[in-house]
Amino acid sequence: MTDIPALPPSRPTPGPTSGIGVDTSRLASRANLEKAGKQFESVFAGMMLKSMRQAHLAEELFSSKGLDTFRDMQDQQVAQSMADHAPLGIGKAMTDFLAKSQANLQPESTSKPAGETP
Results as ranks from 00 to 15, higher is better:
K65I: 02
P12S: 09
Q77G: 12
G37L: 02
T24K: 12
S25Q: 13
S64V: 00
F40N: 04
T69D: 15
P14W: 03
K100S: 06
P12Y: 04
Q39S: 10
S63D: 05
R53D: 13
E59F: 02
K38C: 11
G91I: 00
S10A: 14
L61F: 14
A55R: 10
T24R: 15
S10H: 11
G21P: 01
S64C: 02
R53T: 01
T13G: 07
M48K: 11
A103D: 13
T17D: 13
R53S: 10
G115K: 14
Q106I: 02
D96W: 02
P118F: 08
A45F: 05
P14A: 02
S64L: 03
L67Y: 09
A103N: 09
Q54H: 14
L33S: 05
S111P: 04
S25P: 06
F44D: 03
E34N: 15
T110H: 08
S29G: 03
M1I: 03
A83F: 00
P87A: 00
Q106P: 07
S29N: 10
D75S: 06
G115T: 08
P16W: 06
P8H: 06
M73N: 10
V22I: 14
S101C: 06
S101T: 08
L49P: 00
Q106L: 13
F62W: 11
A79G: 00
N104G: 09
L88T: 05
A45R: 13
L49Q: 03
E34R: 08
S18I: 02
M1P: 10
E116Y: 11
F44I: 01
D75N: 03
P87M: 00
P9I: 04
A83E: 01
G19I: 01
M82L: 11
G115I: 08
P113L: 13
A6Q: 15
P12G: 06
T13Y: 11
L27D: 12
A93Y: 01
